[in-house]
């Protein structure tokens, strides 16, 4: 490793770390504002609120029907995770193990929904779903959320499956395993860490997926993030603290899963979808 010891490079390092510090401080202060406000009795024109209370949580829970919203959120997320796992892992296996004409086109087909922002393809998708009558229903929300998550699982799982030596599968075949047995007894145990990682990332992404859910959700199929958007959008109708309490509920829901996910994946995978090389 190269260590620069000139004054200029030391100053540069200080400047860079100051920028990082400024960003991180502002990020935490922003989150801190929401949390503080959700526990505040009255907070106007001072550094800290006049008093502390937890009553906004109970009022937010009843005002925004958070119980129902959370239930719908977990049902949607559960369905999305299971279906994208089933579709994604099988397709990834085929793409990792076989070379066939048109494979590159297929990979492009799976890459595009991840590169194109959801709002761009969400509007035509919502139009189609409204015409079929699926929009506004539970399954409409699930189907819309699957569009980016199935390719996400495929591209992540290809990397995991390619790491498994095909000779292991050949050996299982020699001993008479059929495809189902091969999958259950050989592949699944080997792939479990990868599947778990991919599905946890799908889970976190689906909880936070605003645009697609927003475009196709009806009043009874809203997830938490969409309900939060409507609450902020109609700010002034409810107390600010109540909305902040809801935001904290949303944050906790997301962060619990993020913390679980981070035990299995490298944080950079959330963005780059690839195994990061070790730092030098």
């Amino acid at each position: 490793m190269i260590r620069d010891t000139t004054l200029g490079s030391k100053l540069w390092a200080v400047a860079v770390w100051t920028m990082v510090g400024f960003f991180v401080v502002n990020l935490f202060a922003m989150i801190g504002t929401v949390v503080t406000s959700s526990f505040a009795t009255r907070w106007l024109g001072t550094w800290l609120p006049a008093g502390w209370t937890t009553r906004w949580y109970s009022s937010a829970w009843s005002e925004f029907q958070l119980g129902d919203v959370l239930l719908v959120t977990f049902q949607v997320v559960g369905a999305v995770v299971l279906i994208s796992g089933a579709l994604g892992v099988t397709a990834a296996y085929a793409l990792a193990r076989r070379d066939f004409p048109g494979k590159r086109m297929l990979l492009l087909l799976f890459l595009l929904p991840l590169l194109i922002p959801p709002i761009t393809f969400g509007i035509p998708l919502a139009t189609v779903l409204y015409q079929t009558g699926l929009a506004g229903t539970f399954w409409g929300v699930v189907v819309a959320n699957l569009v980016p998550t199935v390719p996400f699982v495929i591209l992540l799982m290809i990397l995991f499956i390619e790491q498994i030596d095909p000779k292991i599968e050949a050996a299982a075949r020699v001993f008479g395993a059929n495809t189902f047995k091969l999958f259950i007894h050989v592949l699944l145990p080997l792939l479990l860490p990868g599947i778990l990682a991919a599905l946890l990332l799908v889970l976190v992404r689906t909880i936070a997926m605003f645009e697609l859910t927003f475009l196709v959700a009806g009043p009874t199929s809203q997830t938490l993030v969409v309900a939060l958007y409507y609450a902020v959008f109609a700010a002034g109708v409810r107390a600010v603290q109540s909305i902040d309490a809801m935001a904290v509920v949303y944050m906790v829901t997301t962060l619990v899963w993020l913390i679980i996910a981070l035990r299995f994946v490298n944080p950079t995978q959330i963005v780059t979808r690839a195994k990061q090389q070790p730092a030098h």
Partner: peptide, 29 residues
């Protein structure tokens, strides 16, 4: 990297809600 993944995971709606408070005329900033 974990700290930096936070805003991506929380999503734009929560960041908007947080910044409304934080950058507002009475906010900490």
């Amino acid at each position: 990297t974990t700290i930096l993944v936070l805003p991506i995971t929380l999503g734009t709606v929560l960041v908007a809600e947080g910044l409304l408070n934080y950058l507002g005329p009475q906010g900490w900033f």
